[in-house]
Design a protein around this nucleic acid. Sequence first.
DNA 1: GCGCTTTCGCTACGAGTCGTAGCGTAACTG
DNA 2: CAGTTACGCTACGACTCGTAGCGAAAGCGC
Lengths: 206, 206
Amino acid sequence: MESRTSAARTGRPRSVAADAAILAATREALVELGWSKLTLGDVATRAGVAKTTVYRRWAGKNELVVDAVAALFDELELPDRGSLAADIEGVVLQFAAILDRPEAKSGLMAVVAEATRDEALRERIRASIVDRQKRLVVEGRARAAQRGELPPETDPEAASRTADLIFDVVAGAVVHRTLVSAEPVDEDWARRFAAMLFGGLAATGT
Amino acid sequence: MESRTSAARTGRPRSVAADAAILAATREALVELGWSKLTLGDVATRAGVAKTTVYRRWAGKNELVVDAVAALFDELELPDRGSLAADIEGVVLQFAAILDRPEAKSGLMAVVAEATRDEALRERIRASIVDRQKRLVVEGRARAAQRGELPPETDPEAASRTADLIFDVVAGAVVHRTLVSAEPVDEDWARRFAAMLFGGLAATGT
DNA sequence: GCGCTTTCGCTACGAGTCGTAGCGTAACTG
DNA sequence: CAGTTACGCTACGACTCGTAGCGAAAGCGC
């Protein structure tokens, strides 16, 4: 059995450097031009590759921007800050820091908007961005149960639904605050949000 | 003193029917084509007007879609359902019903994305869509205080910040659930969300 | 080494959209 | 009726799109 990524083991291999250059050029173009004025021709020029090379690897602007933005979420982590409220506060600030970057601001909402009419794109976003975030919710929930702050999970199906709810609340609130209200997610806001969410979780016993 | 809207009281007046036809055609095109494939030329044809007429009234696609989508939010109300939790649940379901319509799905997030690089567009969205929603939060908060469910507001500045927080949480969660998670905001979800938010509000004494 | 295969950069192309200008006509005012 | 503005229509240059065709480059199996 050979290497797992053996779709084509013959011929000239695709330049991995080109991949990185194209994605970096995409983020750069997002910052300078924004989503609507970003063109694949311009990205190719910035990356130092031919336009055809970009089209060989990505189906279009949507897919390219998803991959370019997804890389920004690699840095998301959940350090143990001692309490559930503090953990929530920490992840909110981290998420907000990413969202505050202009390449994320411009690109993320645009592809989400496009995804409303494109099932495959929605799945791509889910796999490369959303799931990575959602894992933090599950981790934080388990940590809180271990500390005794919340009762341990019993029904796994209910636990999954609750995790989904929390995730939509956290991510949704941060996104809405940043992009729609256009107000900063500073430490004060994060503290008040975390207090409210923690209070709701404790009150409903989930 | 003459009529208040007297920018130009001479010459041929602008057809109000054309305004309505263009906005309706925009919503129709949003449903059929989505944001990215919507063109002003197509909208003009659907509305039965010349392309130049559209450009005389709107600066571009962004502004036109904001106005077309804003009309969808006219129906938002806050009937008294007896308790704060029930009120939250009601407004969540209403908001979700609007967001579930394809013309809102496709258009709203796209203009929000564009607004990240356009201050004037952000202000237009705020005035015609966001503020209308936010008023419901203030109203619901006051009603809850009247019922004795929450302590009355003392510091008006703190009250305003809390209203902003609640608004971002409610609207953000519904938008995220609908567009990113792509899961339905049904009665069960709304009930669990309202319970969590109400618990958080009661716990933090805001 | 040598052929086979795939990717590469480059150029060119038709199709489509953009936003504007110019024109004659329509609608309303004093 | 004269003045003013909106209207429908046509045409336009500039731009982007996504694809096709080419010769050269870069690995792989023999």
